[in-house]
Write a protein that binds this DNA or RNA. Sequence first.
DNA 1: CTAAGATGGACAACGTCGTTGTCGGAAATA
DNA 2: TATTTCCGACAACGACGTTGTCCATCTTAG
Lengths: 162, 162
Amino acid sequence: MSSETNAPPGFELPLRLFMAFREMIDELHAELARRGHPNMRPMDGFVFQAIGPYGTTAAELGRRLGVSKQAAGKTIDALERLGYVDRAADPRDARRKIVKLTAHGADSLAKSAEIFEELRARWVRTLGEKRVRALESDLRRMTPDDYFRVDVPGWFGDRGGS
Amino acid sequence: MSSETNAPPGFELPLRLFMAFREMIDELHAELARRGHPNMRPMDGFVFQAIGPYGTTAAELGRRLGVSKQAAGKTIDALERLGYVDRAADPRDARRKIVKLTAHGADSLAKSAEIFEELRARWVRTLGEKRVRALESDLRRMTPDDYFRVDVPGWFGDRGGS
DNA sequence: CTAAGATGGACAACGTCGTTGTCGGAAATA
DNA sequence: TATTTCCGACAACGACGTTGTCCATCTTAG
């Protein structure tokens, strides 16, 4: 029973998971702003990942993000105004418009990757490579294999109607 | 340099942190729904924690949550309609209205605590007590000491104006 | 004690975001 | 060829958070 003693309250784990995540994302965006990308929202990175290197359509993006195609369309509008993506007609299908990252958008993705490496390096400096690996390994065991269900938007959710 | 080889991409860590957090919160709410508390939003727990055992006022709640007092007021309206909190006049200050958890609200908090313990126990079954403790310890080192800056609402953030 | 300032709560207007509903044009299928 | 499916856009709506305003009340300075 001694292994049960002094166990932290159960809610600490999820809370710390969130705090750590949030901390990293906040630092990412602070750094991103310094390197030429202000105006990026916390989850625009997810959107860019969902767009992918070859581009997508609004409807497909909506599916990947777990939102309606209209919502995806509005997100694209906003990102287009900010210069991160652009739309081009699909020569094969007159209905579709291919949404692609612009150079600026691709740059934000590259910068994000750099910064994530730096952040991980900081964790390694504090905890050591071994524990960071253990951390990643443990989290990998506790989460779905495919780290690509990025249906984050609106996850905090509405209170529904009435 | 061999310790650098095969390191996962830097973005995996934050992503897994979020996935794990989200997974736990989703399970919490699924279970909460089964135990008499549907209609709870992912972060209502944060709000309840911010209200605390002795109650608060809307303005104070807004400060703790990092939102305007009006937004806090609307949140309270919603929670009041759902029967989780109620408002009572403060005998000492005619301006203030004390927001308190109802029995139903307190019950949701107690149930949440139970479920969090069960979820942690599940992690222990998979990873072992030792690694879960290490996980908690590492995360504690990488996050602020006070685990009570619950200014979560709207964190995913708007795209500001125009 | 009184006048000035600060604070709490409510109301209203606004903007953002995501939703559903609808529609016309284009592609896929029967 | 005719029907069905799919894409993208427009419109209306509800939820949520914001600022601005207002009055009532508490606090503080003089």
